[in-house]
């Protein structure tokens, strides 16, 4: 009666499909997505994240439970769906990851080195940031995405993100738009959503953070942007920088209104 669920099993099945031109790649990919979503362990990572949220840490030995994610200290319900937003105490727009870092270094008095030592985890060494993010995001299930758009800095972040999205640079002259600017295009077999349009990006912003089968880990939007720039052959974006938050703000505002349906499961 012991059943093992392995991402690898689903992957092998998909790879065994004959790749003839008659096969609708998009449909088969969707079928596979559905299969991996059914066996997704994302919720189990949420439990680990919740324990970390409540864990007393740092020189003051306090948990993150007093952290204000925008809806008041300690309020996690529906907080993720209303990010990024402007925070007066930091006088800047923050996404979830940036805000968590802020709480680690202020509320918990942890050093920046300590708080940033494992921003991106792997199967051997999970990341506190990723586990916390997946827990917080899970508390927004069903809540429509509604990032801040009224404060002047929120508007500036959107506009900067929009310009950055189309900004070509790096060793290969790529912008985000090089791959995510045109409908029905793919890299190898992977279809690419048009992220500059609401219909292309709504489902995307509503499913990050996500469990990634290929990493056997949960990953956040900061990671997604970071790995895109790696593949774009740019230098490395700084975690939580104004540029990365601006891109998240741009994407989330473009996809606003979509009920949060994550944490998702992706290839």
């Amino acid at each position: 009666m012991l059943k093992t669920l392995m991402g690898g099993a689903a992957l092998a099945l998909a790879a065994a499909l004959p790749l003839h031109a008659q096969v609708d790649i998009r449909k088969e990919t969707q079928r596979w997505q559905q299969m991996i979503a059914e066996g997704s362990p994302a919720e189990l990572f949420e439990i680990e994240g919740e324990a970390l949220w409540k864990k007393k840490q740092g020189p003051k030995n306090v948990s993150l439970e007093g952290c204000d994610l925008g809806q008041g200290p300690g309020v996690v319900k529906a907080a993720y769906a209303q990010l990024p937003k402007y925070f007066a105490d930091a006088d800047r727009v923050m996404d979830l990851e940036t805000r968590l870092l802020h709480c680690m270094t202020t509320l918990q008095s942890r050093s920046p080195q300590d708080a940033t030592q494992r921003l991106y985890g792997n199967a051997d060494r999970p990341s506190e940031m990723e586990l916390l993010s997946v827990y917080i995001a899970g508390q927004s299930r069903g809540v429509p995405m509604a990032p801040g758009t009224r404060h002047v800095k929120e508007r500036e972040a959107f506009e900067l993100g929009q310009k950055l999205f189309f900004h070509r640079a790096g060793a290969w002259d790529f912008s985000c738009s090089s791959c995510h600017g045109e409908a029905d295009k793919r890299i190898r077999m992977q279809y690419l959503p048009v992220m500059s349009q609401p219909e292309g990006v709504r489902k995307i912003v509503a499913t990050w953070p996500s469990y990634l089968v290929r990493n056997a880990q949960v990953k956040t939007m900061q990671w997604r942007i970071w790995d895109c720039y790696r593949q774009m052959r740019w230098p490395e974006p700084v975690f939580g920088s104004e540029a990365t938050v601006a891109i998240t703000q741009y994407l989330t505002v473009t996809g606003q209104g979509e009920p949060y349906a994550g944490p998702g499961t992706k290839r």
Partner: peptide, 19 residues
């Protein structure tokens, strides 16, 4: 209620589910 044997063929960080 359950005792089981697992082999090295199982993936890293495995998820077990049972009823």
């Amino acid at each position: 209620v359950i005792e089981g044997e697992v082999s090295q063929a199982v993936s890293r960080n495995p998820v077990f589910s049972f009823r």
